[in-house]
Computed example of a mutant assay.
Amino acid sequence: MSVIDQFIDSRQLDRGSADKTIEAYKRDLIQFSQSLKNETRLEDIDLNDLNAFISRLYGQKQKASSIARKVSTLRQFFKFCCLEKGLKKNPAEKLQGPHQTKRLPKFLDHKAVTELLKASDIGWPYEKGNREALQARDRAMVYLLYATGIRVSELVGLSTHNLDLQLEYIRVKGKGDKERIVPYASVAGDKLRAYLELRMQLNPATDHLFVNRNGLAITRQGFWKILKVLAERAGIPSNVSPHFLRHSFATHLLQSGMNLRSVQMLLGHSDLSTTQIYAHVTPEHLKIAHRKFHPRG
C-alpha cells in the first residue's frame, strides 16, 4: 500500500472524512506526485518542490479556493508522514497558500422568504397526473429546508426513518457521517404530513423521504431546478440556490437573538469559526443586542 493510500485510510478511519473530501485528498496528492521527477523518494521532497507545484497551479489560473485546498491537503499529508511514517523533516511546514477573503453568505430577507413560501404553496405548474403529490413534495422540501437550515445533500438524503412527526424533528447525517438532531416548526410539519399522505401516489421504490415522479430519490440538481422556478414565480432572483435558504435560516435566527453556539449545533458546523461569519451579516442586530445587554451600552 502506498503512503498516499495509507494517508487516505487514516482520514477515513480516524477522522471520518466525507467521501467527497476523501476524493479531493486523493486527487490532489496524485496530481502533486505526478509533478515530481520519477523515483523521487518521500524524504527527498523539499519546500522547493512544493512551491514549484503551487506556482504551476497559479500559472494554470486555478481558483484561489482550489489552491488553498491543495495546500491544506499537502500540509496534512506531510504532517501524517512525520507522525506515522518517520519522516524527519516536514517540507510543508512553511508552505504558504493564497490569501482568501471570506465571502459573506448570501441570504434572503424575511419578505423574500415569505414570497418564496407563498410560491411553493401555489406550486409548480405540473401537468396532470400526480400534480398534487409533486406540488406537496416541493412544498414540504422548501418549508423543511428553511425550517431546519440543513444542507441540500442532507435534505435529499433523508429517509422516512429519519423523520419524527410527533416530536417534530429530523435525524440528519451530515459531513463525515456525523449525525445530529434538528427540530422543525409545526408549519413545516403540516407540509410534511400533507406530502406523506400523497407520497404513495409516486410509487416510491426507495425509503428516501423525497422521491421524483419515477419513485426514485430526488437529486440535488432536481430540487435546485424546482427552487429556481419557484423563485422566479416569487419575483426574487432566479440565481437562488438551496444554500441561500440555509444561510437565511442561520441569519434570521441570529437576528432573532439566538446565540452562535446553538446556531452552530443546528447547522452541523464542527468549528464555531465557520458559524461566526453569519455575525458579519447582522451588524445592526448585534448593535441592538449590545445596547440592550451591555451595562453602559
Score class of each variant (00 low, 15 high):
residue 65 S to E: 12
residue 18 A to S: 15
residue 55 S to N: 13
residue 49 D to I: 01
residue 149 G to Y: 10
residue 138 D to C: 03
residue 26 K to N: 10
residue 222 G to R: 11
residue 102 K to W: 01
residue 202 L to K: 11
residue 22 I to V: 15
residue 139 R to K: 15
residue 238 S to E: 06
residue 49 D to M: 03
residue 178 K to M: 05
residue 10 S to Y: 13
residue 240 V to A: 03
residue 215 G to V: 08
residue 169 Y to D: 00
residue 168 E to G: 00
residue 158 L to M: 12
residue 227 L to N: 01
residue 30 I to M: 04
residue 37 K to A: 10
residue 206 T to L: 05
residue 129 G to W: 04
residue 167 L to Q: 13
residue 45 I to C: 03
residue 197 E to D: 11
residue 202 L to R: 12
residue 39 E to P: 00
residue 270 S to Q: 13
residue 257 G to Y: 06
residue 250 A to F: 12
residue 119 A to C: 03
residue 78 F to P: 06
residue 36 L to D: 01
residue 294 H to W: 10
residue 132 E to V: 12
residue 15 R to Y: 10
residue 177 D to E: 15
residue 227 L to F: 02
residue 235 G to I: 02
residue 59 G to S: 12
residue 234 A to R: 06
residue 72 S to Q: 05
residue 136 A to Y: 10
residue 130 N to D: 12
residue 292 K to A: 13
residue 233 R to V: 00
residue 220 R to K: 14
residue 69 R to P: 08
residue 147 A to M: 04
residue 222 G to Y: 11
residue 128 K to N: 10
residue 3 V to N: 13
residue 67 I to Y: 08
residue 292 K to Q: 14
residue 297 G to P: 01
residue 107 F to L: 06
residue 65 S to T: 15
residue 12 Q to K: 14
residue 170 I to Q: 00
residue 72 S to A: 15
residue 30 I to V: 11
residue 106 K to A: 07
residue 235 G to N: 02
residue 71 V to M: 09
residue 237 P to S: 07
residue 39 E to T: 00
residue 24 A to I: 11
residue 277 I to R: 11
residue 35 S to Y: 01
residue 215 G to Q: 11
residue 29 L to T: 02
residue 148 T to R: 02
residue 9 D to E: 14
residue 142 V to L: 07
residue 67 I to W: 10
residue 93 E to K: 14
residue 28 D to Y: 02
residue 1 M to I: 05
residue 59 G to E: 15
residue 34 Q to Y: 01
residue 284 E to T: 06
residue 117 L to H: 04
residue 3 V to D: 14
residue 248 S to R: 12
residue 266 L to H: 05
residue 245 L to W: 04
residue 107 F to T: 05
residue 216 L to E: 14
residue 213 R to T: 07
residue 66 S to P: 10
residue 239 N to K: 11
residue 120 S to G: 05
residue 15 R to N: 12
residue 125 P to S: 09
residue 16 G to Q: 07
residue 192 L to C: 07
residue 32 F to Y: 05
residue 148 T to L: 01
residue 253 L to K: 05
residue 99 H to T: 14
residue 206 T to W: 10
residue 217 A to C: 13
residue 265 M to K: 14
residue 5 D to Y: 03
residue 204 P to K: 13
residue 98 P to D: 08
residue 124 W to F: 14
residue 151 R to W: 06
residue 229 V to Q: 06
residue 21 T to S: 12
residue 188 A to H: 13
residue 9 D to M: 04
residue 135 Q to P: 04
residue 193 R to I: 09
residue 282 T to P: 02
residue 251 T to I: 09
